[in-house]
Every structure is written in structure tokens, then in C-alpha cells.
């Protein structure tokens, strides 16, 4: 027996995909295939392996970029959170980066680093790093004063306090910041493929659009959104399993 909430989710999905199907049959636009056409195209893309090769290529800059921004972002965030002077010096740059439409830097990156992997990794990094660094910094700075005092009063050394108190206390928000960074990284990776050079999934989207194979185009877009959403949801689940009992504070964009 399905629970009420799952039943409603199914119903809701049925409505939306049904509406998509109907709109495609009317059709609302020559460029709007039906849901079933798109899903057929998706299964063909999966069946002949095109999609897997494409993701192999799309995910490379994303993975490399996230690894770099994860290490650098968390590292810088730690220093920002622990040191007031560094906070004053470095934080404003990330604050500006976080509010700014950094996508506008892409033409410049292409000029500087060409149209290869480097540029794409860079795009992922500039999108993902600010949110990771700022959340890490904030989490470290917001460690409850009383548990730090506790560490001091029980004779903890500076490194004891950072390693045994500040870091564990900050880790839920750091992890959540990392998740937001990955979410932004997805945007960067797709943007890079659509704007810099069409490779991977971006290539499927661009190519099928140019030959007016709209079902394949929709299928590719559908697949990347599903992939991102499923992956980010899994991360959120993991977060709840890891830090379930101690959710203090929220990561912010």
C-alpha cells in the first residue's frame, strides 16, 4: 500500500507529464515534442550508449572543478573563519563573487585559457568556490562560544580546539555548503558546454537542436536535470544520515 505522500507524488508527476504529453500533441509549438517522444528518444540515447559517452565528458570538468573548489574553498574558509584579519582581507572578494553574475567571466576565460578542459574547470570553480568558502567560514566563525570556552577551560590546546571542537561543530554546514557548491558547479559545467564548446551532453543538446531533432534535445536536457536533482538529493539524504542529530544552522547561498 502506498503512503499518502507517495501517492500524491505519483499523482503530481502523472499530471505534469500528462500535461506535457497533451501540450506536445496539440502541439503548442513545432519545437515542443510530446513526453512520450522525448522518453523514446531518451531510451534510444541510453540504448546506443551515446548518453554514457556524453556524460563521461560532461562530468570530467565538473568532478575536477568540484575537487579543486572543495579543497581550496574549505581550506580558505577555515582560515577565514579562524582569523579575523584574513576574514577582513579575503571574505569581501567571495561575497562579491557570490552575488555577482560570474557567468559573465566566461568569454574572458575562453580568451585566456582557450576552449579546452581548463576553461571549463575554471567555470565550475568560479561558480562553486564562493559558496563553499563562505559557508565554511561562517560555520567556523559561528561555532558556539560556550563549547570553545569549554575546550579552553579544560585545557585544550589551540589545535585540540580546532580539530576536536570547531571542525566537528562546523562540519554539517560545511557539508551543506559543499552540496550548494556542487549544485552551482552543475550550472557551471552545463553553461561551459553550451557556451564554450559543445561537448558531452551540451553537444547532444546543441547538435539535435541544429538538426531540429527536438525529442533528443529534450531528452538530453531531461536527463541532466534528473541526474543533478537525484545526485543532490542523495547528498542531502547522506547529510541527514551523517549529521541527523545536530543540525545547527543552515548553509546559505
Amino acid at each position: 500500500m502506498l503512503s499518502r505522500s507517495n501517492l500524491l507524488k505519483l499523482l503530481s508527476a502523472f499530471f505534469v507529464f500528462g500535461a506535457w504529453e497533451v501540450a506536445g500533441r496539440i502541439p503548442v509549438s513545432f519545437a515542443f515534442p510530446t513526453f512520450l517522444e522525448s522518453m523514446t528518444a531518451l531510451s534510444i540515447l541510453i540504448w546506443d550508449g551515446t548518453l554514457f559517452t556524453a556524460y563521461g565528458e560532461t562530468l570530467r570538468p565538473l568532478v575536477v572543478g568540484i575537487l579543486i573548489s572543495g579543497f581550496l574553498g574549505i581550506g580558505i574558509g577555515l582560515f577565514i573563519g579562524l582569523n579575523r584579519k584574513l576574514d577582513w582581507l579575503v571574505s569581501p572578494i567571495f561575497v562579491v563573487m557570490q552575488t555577482a553574475p560570474l557567468a559573465a567571466l566566461i568569454p574572458l576565460l575562453v580568451m585566456a585559457y582557450g576552449i579546452g578542459l581548463t576553461s571549463k574547470v575554471f567555470v565550475v570553480c568560479i561558480m562553486a568556490m564562493p559558496v563553499i568558502a563562505l559557508n565554511t567560514g561562517g560555520a567556523v566563525r559561528n561555532t558556539p562560544a560556550s563549547i570553545k570556552e569549554m575546550g579552553l577551560s579544560f585545557l585544550g590546546t589551540r589545535s585540540d580546539i580546532v580539530l576536536k571542537i570547531v571542525l566537528p561543530a562546523a562540519s554539517p554546514v560545511i557539508f551543506a555548503g559543499l552540496r550548494l557548491g556542487i549544485s552551482a558547479g552543475f550550472i557551471g559545467a552545463i553553461l561551459a558546454e553550451l557556451k564554450i564548446t559543445p561537448t558531452g551532453v551540451g553537444d547532444i543538446i546543441t547538435y539535435s537542436r541544429s538538426i531540429a531533432d527536438y525529442p533528443s534535445m529534450y531528452a538530453a536536457i531531461f536527463s541532466i536535470i534528473v541526474l543533478a536533482v537525484v545526485f543532490l538529493n542523495l547528498l542531502e539524504k547522506l547529510e541527514r544520515i551523517l549529521f541527523g542529530g545536530l543540525n545547527r544552522g543552515y548553509a546559505s547561498e
Binding site: S146, I147, M150, S153, F154, P168, A169, G245, R248
Partner: peptide
Amino acid sequence: FVFQDFALLPW
């Protein structure tokens, strides 16, 4: 020291 808000490590 015994703290007003207990200052326990939640993890």
C-alpha cells in the same frame, strides 16, 4: 567549569 548551556559536544 560547569556551563549554563551545558556546552556538550552534540556529536
